[in-house]
Write a protein that binds this DNA or RNA. Sequence first.
RNA 1: GGAGGGGUGGCCGAGCGGUCAAUGGCAGCAGACUGUAAAUCUGCCGACUUCGCGUCUACGAAGGUUCGAAUCCUUCCCCCUCCA
Length: 374
Amino acid sequence: MSLAFDLIGTDGLARRGRVATAHGTVETPAFMPLGTGGTVKAMMPQSVRETGAEIVLGNTFHLMLQPGAERVAALGGLHKFMDWPGPILTDSGGFQVMSLKELRKLDRDGVTFRSPRDGSQHRLTPERSINIQHLLDTDITMSFDECTAWPVEEAAAARSMRLSMVWAERGKRAFVQRPGYGLFGIVQGSVFPALRAESAKVLADIGFDGYAIGGLAVGEGQELMFKTLDTTIPLLPADKPRYLMGVGRPADIVGAVQRGVDMFDCVLPTRGGRTAQAFTRRGELNLRNARHRNDPRPVDEQCGCPACQSHSRAYLHHLIRSEEILGAMLLTWHNLHYYQDVMRGLRGAIESNSLCHWIAAFENEQDRGDLPEI
RNA sequence: GGAGGGGUGGCCGAGCGGUCAAUGGCAGCAGACUGUAAAUCUGCCGACUUCGCGUCUACGAAGGUUCGAAUCCUUCCCCCUCCA
């Protein structure tokens, strides 16, 4: 296969691994910040790297609309274009099949979107999605799928999943194998174990460089999500990386790692950075709240990020209230840094076979809640 | 001195006889956000409150007209513009 995955160690179902791509290696379990439109919002590429992130996401749909895949290719590919020399994974546009429901028409062959930017029409098929990702020069290409919405009847979930499976196979045929580049299949089937099993089998038979679990964290709740992981993950090939798409809160990630997931992505740390939501060792904070107004303490007293090293909650609160760009920058930086701290902790714990203790301490700290008010 | 325009809830600003505790926006107080239509969105925002289309006090001040006034009239106070 063209994308190497080394399994370095395990602790229970949790795995410590390494994915080798054409643009560098990724230590897993890994969190991948979202750089949907060719930028991790509010962050310089170098700053993203400094948080510890080794790989970022791009998005087929967004880059297709602006600036256009062919233009990115002509300018040397996405790595050069956005100045991110490390590995890149791109989503296929499958999430937009769900999130842009009112702006698209789905048929068996593909999806026609109306652009949210200007109303222009754009067609995405499994082949075109793969082709765009080739043009972007992404290291890890995702199959074009339909992210099944929640809630959903089993029959509808089955239809949706089977369509995604047909598309996965078409994508596999369209994918051009190259050393250091890989294609991931995406397991669908909502929360129905039989559908997940069917989907996992179809994908394993086709053969992919990695297996993603899609259609979760769409409203079903953590308990159902974990249940679905419990039944789905054992059906995935053990020698390939597993990627839980769109997840999640730190506690979601920890629980999923414990169940054998290797890769994650989520908008929360970056979006939260722009909407005053801070993720910390002691839970979540809304820095817009008046109680931070006079607080000289950092967002997270244990954090080594620039925001926590040099700035008070009061200052961040002020920046956010005044809509200063620096507020979004610093808080995004903090959130990404904290997420990477969690991943570093998880990797270390698996290596030392102490994941249970690590998780107990993590949960304990989260449950303590925020620092006392001053 | 003359002519004209205006004073509305923390601020800006609609309303110009009833359906007005009074549109909007801002500020304020909270909430949401999970493969990013997101530096976005939602709720609350006179007082009291059994939180209810309940009571009270309210649209510069005081009187008046009217079944009924933020809206009409009179007087007063204060602002702004223009002309001398």
